[in-house]
Amino acid sequence: MSAADATPAPAPAPAPVIELDDVHVAFTSGFGAGRREVRAMSHVSFSVGPGETLGLVGESGSGKTTTGTVVLGLQRPDSGSVHFQGAPLARSLRSRAGRMQAVLQHPRWALDPRSTVLSSVLEPVLVHERRSAEVEERALAMLDRVGLPASFAARRPHQLSGGQLQRVSVARALVTHPAFIVFDEAVSALDVSVQAQILNLIQDLQAEHGFAALFISHDLAAVRYISHHVAVMRAGEIVEHAPTDVFYDLPSHPYSRQLFQELSS
């Protein structure tokens, strides 16, 4: 067989944006003789590549939110490692400002009620750049991209609906073009029709910008719609991790099947 007939080797998979290896986090609960250790994360390992979304599901108290704080560097693990873009996650928040972002369940908690929409979107940019006409134009362009025209720039949070506030949060997260975003129950407080709009917006923006995402939710329908892979947490451990289609066709772990029944009822 000639060299021309040889089948080209497949392109190597892109390096993970975020990677956890055997991460353990424990907290102390109670007082005196009742003090005990609570495992928030135990032997947690996963990775998320560029343009991918990992859906993280589990009941309340399973460790999902702690996982989100660990991957953002807001909580240091007791053991194990967290790598971001191939390097150990830096301890300095400023050093990774803008490269990692979060969109939370209640945008009113994340937005200063005294600030205008434009100022809120500009806030993460101004960590590294001075305010200027060019910087403001970028923020206005991002607001427009998430469906909020320039007339919204001077408004304050109390003047916006829940869906509009979450669009501001998404714009604020995307304006620095991060490599990784955590969506922590980002649509659970919204009406069903608004949820669909925000999920579609996140999908479109991920296709455009290629960011990796961790989508934390108890909403199995939302996770199925937006995620490429699904991980199930129980008592701090990941008990199942599979491609979305495989997982929803036939969850393999008994707890996953139980979770389907509980969250679908």
Rank of each mutant, 00 (worst) to 15 (best):
A153R: 00
V82R: 12
V125Y: 04
S151V: 03
P14N: 02
A171E: 08
L250S: 15
H83G: 07
R35N: 07
A13C: 04
L190E: 01
V194S: 06
R224Y: 05
M142L: 09
V103Q: 04
R156G: 03
T116A: 02
V239P: 14
L56V: 11
V71L: 07
M142H: 04
V135A: 11
R91W: 12
S132R: 08
V70N: 00
P124A: 05
S132L: 08
V230D: 10
V125W: 07
E237R: 12
Y225F: 10
W109A: 03
S29Y: 04
D249I: 01
V182Y: 00
P8D: 02
Q75C: 09
A6Y: 02
M41Q: 03
A141M: 05
M233K: 00
R76T: 00
S42H: 11
A102W: 10
G58C: 14
S115T: 11
A40V: 06
L214E: 03
E262H: 05
Q105V: 08
T28C: 05
L56P: 02
S92W: 14
G210K: 01
A139D: 01
S45F: 07
V70M: 02
A150W: 09
A4S: 05
L118S: 13
L174S: 00
R257G: 07
L250M: 12
L54K: 08
L143P: 07
G236P: 05
Q101D: 11
A6C: 08
A87Q: 12
L54E: 10
L20K: 12
M41Y: 00
V44E: 06
N200F: 05
F27D: 07
L165Q: 06
L165M: 08
S119L: 01
A222E: 08
D219Y: 01
G32M: 05
L205Q: 14
L259E: 07
S265C: 03
Q206R: 15
A221F: 03
V239R: 06
A186I: 09
A242P: 13
P16S: 02
L205R: 12
V48M: 00
S81V: 09
E208H: 07
V170F: 10
A3I: 01
A213Y: 05
R35H: 03
S252R: 10
G49H: 00
A11Y: 01
R114K: 14
L126K: 08
S188N: 11
V230I: 07
V127M: 10
